[in-house]
């Protein structure tokens, strides 16, 4: 990296109280303080946020797409984890 290029930070915003933080994009910044300011300037120009997280992009560990089957197929089979698996009489089916 060139000495004038700033690293990348991923930005997560909580849009309203009660919601979880959601990934919205990234910003460049020289350090965390600046990343927070830059995220505020860029992603909350219209009152979109009540809280911001910034994370060094290199710190994100992502699942690999080629492991998609190994990682995510099994739960599909586990239909007994879902309420609709259990048949109940109509009179108590609101359970």
């Amino acid at each position: 990296m060139n000495k004038t290029d700033w690293p990348l930070y991923e930005v997560f915003i909580r849009s309203r109280h009660g919601l979880s933080h959601k990934h919205v994009g990234s910003v460049h910044a020289a350090d965390e303080t600046m990343a927070m300011e830059n995220a505020r300037e860029l992603y909350t120009r219209r009152n979109e946020g009540t809280s911001i997280w910034v994370v060094d992009s290199n710190a994100i560990c992502a699942s690999a797409p080629e492991q998609k089957d190994a990682m995510f197929t099994s739960p599909v089979e586990k239909i007994y984890r879902h309420p609709s698996f259990y048949q109940l009489p109509a009179s108590v089916d609101k359970m």
Partner: peptide, 11 residues
């Protein structure tokens, strides 16, 4: 000096 600062100055 950088685009992020462009939005900040304008704000």
């Amino acid at each position: 000096p950088i685009l992020e600062e462009e939005t900040a100055l304008m704000n």
